[in-house]
Amino acid sequence: MNALRLGSYTFSSRLILGTGKFSSVPAMIEAVRASKAQLVTVALRRFNREQAEDDLFGPLSEIEGLTLMPNTSGAATAKEAVKAAHISRELSGSPFIKVEIHPNPHHLMPDPIETWEACKILAAEGFIVMPYIPADPVLAKRLEEVGCSSVMPLGSAIGSGQGLSTSAMVQLIIRESSIPVIVDAGLRSPSEACAAMEMGCAAVLVNSAIAVARDPAAMASAFAKAVEAGYDARNAGLMPRSGSAVATSPLTSFLGASS
């Protein structure tokens, strides 16, 4: 596999893992190891002395070669997201920030306007900005222009398991983007992750599908294989789909016989 480049960082793994929704920290750690992911997302939370064992920094820092990508979840505005990013950088020591601004707590759809504002500020401050966005090709170009290091369009709603329901729009984004396109959210099965990679995604970000699997580590490993297969298939050059049937009255008869 060629390296995935994000800012000045390179990664051999193209599977990014989310760390939420796992039954326990050890189950999450086991899944991260099985996925061979090198980039994982974490969220900022208030410290609670009664639940100090939930802190992830310690356990994650024991995994070699892992980079943390804090998200700004909880932020409903650009201002809040920028604040969260500053605190997160303090804690993670990594320039990565996943900008995630969803004002509606139910469907969690990202706010494109606040996201663009926040990304513009954070990219200018030197963050490696990775926005979670609706699958909108124009927004993707706008974010590229303000200096984002990738765009992360949603496959479908967070945690919905509806797969790549935005497939046509994601394909447009891939066609137009000069920065890596990473499908984030909504994937349910490894075959969907594979399809996203075959389509030309640079990576996929998976959380719920692994966290809620009966065996998260086994599912993480299955996703890792699927992502690798999809990436290899893309590079190998897929066979063209068979075209339409040949018309009964030929379209090219005006060209005469072949010379």
Partner: peptide, 19 residues
């Protein structure tokens, strides 16, 4: 590959897709 083909059938197929 589309440009290097020379046979009539592939031409007609391509025409149908282009149309």
């Amino acid at each position: 590959p589309l440009l290097r083909q020379t046979d009539a059938e592939s031409l007609e197929r391509l025409a149908a897709e282009a149309q």
